[in-house]
Design a protein around this nucleic acid. Structure first.
Length: 159
DNA sequence: GCCAACGTTGGC
DNA sequence: GCCAACGTTGGC
């Protein structure tokens, strides 16, 4: 099992929005970056653990835990002309963009970005790398353990 | 609203 | 294949 951090703008879908959805599940649509797409396609597996991160908001940080609940499949929004994520160059025969489904596990105390940055144990976290723009980044098991145990006070990796 | 940094596009 | 211009991300 792998660990991930996935960014979502809470105005669009917050951890509370995820918890309220049918089946507590949301398709992680709208990824339009090849690196992030390839991570979903090639590396993610059902059951992988996810930090749900709130970005572009007053209090950026990790707001909860989720799990990957489907393999990658074509992102429906790429074919929808009314969607902001519409991609006219993509076709159902050769879909360019994929998404996985993500399921709610728990809400956690918010771990602000500034706090993540303050811990030497997390100095190499991908999401903290200078000018990181990937909306999906891998998390090392040791980083996951540190955050869930020491910063959130959770046992069993919080999952 | 600003701006740094990066990915993508498209002309050549 | 190079690279300038442009668009986007996302913290502050």
């Amino acid at each position: 099992m792998r660990y991930w951090l996935m960014k979502s703008e809470p105005d669009d879908c917050s951890i509370d929005d995820l918890a309220r959805r049918p089946g507590s599940t949301v398709p992680w649509y709208g990824v339009r970056n090849y690196q992030a797409r390839n991570l979903m396609r090639d590396q993610m597996q059902v059951g992988d653990a996810v930090f749900f991160y709130h970005s572009s908001c007053p209090q950026p940080g990790i707001a909860g835990i989720a799990r990957v609940s489907s393999p990658a499949y074509p992102d429906a929004t790429q074919f929808d002309p009314a969607s902001p994520y519409h991609d006219p160059k993509s076709t159902p025969e050769a879909p360019r963009w994929l998404n996985v489904d993500v399921q709610f596990v728990r809400k956690t105390p918010l771990v602000p970005l500034a706090e993540l940055r303050s811990h030497t144990e997390l100095a190499n976290m991908r999401v903290l790398a200078r000018a990181n723009r990937l909306s999906i980044t891998p998390v090392d098991p040791a980083e996951w353990r540190f955050i869930t145990r020491e910063l959130m006070g959770l046992d069993n990796d919080g999952i």
